[in-house]
């Protein structure tokens, strides 16, 4: 019954998590949340999400470290990771992609931007 893709939203702001989760569940996907990288890694240790929306700046463990840990865990099936950042330097984007991110998204994003990304990675079909 739970064959809908599970999206893990990782962000230290409750408000942003809520906004993101509201958008994602409005698109018919399941959501879960984690407040920082470490919590995300722990979560993935028990449940493998299909999609991770990962913030960059977070306490405990930042996004890039989290991403590297997730990739090192060699999860199966391999989750799609989209890094969020407000830092739009090319270097940052390259760093994220090199660490194994599938896509990146600029904050602040809105519903259409997120939808675009989800379509791009094939989780949602554009109707």
């Amino acid at each position: 019954m739970n064959n809908k893709p599970l999206c893990l939203v990782v962000d230290d702001s409750r408000v942003i998590r809520r906004v993101a989760m509201d958008i994602i569940s409005s698109l018919g996907l399941r959501t879960a949340e984690a407040e920082h990288g470490l919590a995300a890694v722990e979560f993935c240790g028990t449940t493998v999400p299909d999609f991770v929306l990962l913030d960059w700046n977070m306490p405990e463990m930042d996004g890039i470290t989290c991403l590297r840990s997730l990739r090192a865990m060699d999860l199966n099936p391999r989750p799609i990771v989209v890094m969020c950042t407000t830092e739009n330097g090319l270097a940052k984007i390259r760093e994220a992609l090199e660490a194994g991110a599938d896509e990146y998204i600029m904050k602040p994003y809105d519903r259409d931007v997120l939808l675009d990304k989800l379509v791009q990675v094939g989780l949602v079909e554009r109707a």
Binding site: A32, E33, E35, A39
Partner: peptide, 9 residues
């Protein structure tokens, strides 16, 4: 309820 179930926080 189901969508929020696996929350880690």
């Amino acid at each position: 309820s189901e969508t929020k179930e696996p929350a880690t926080t």
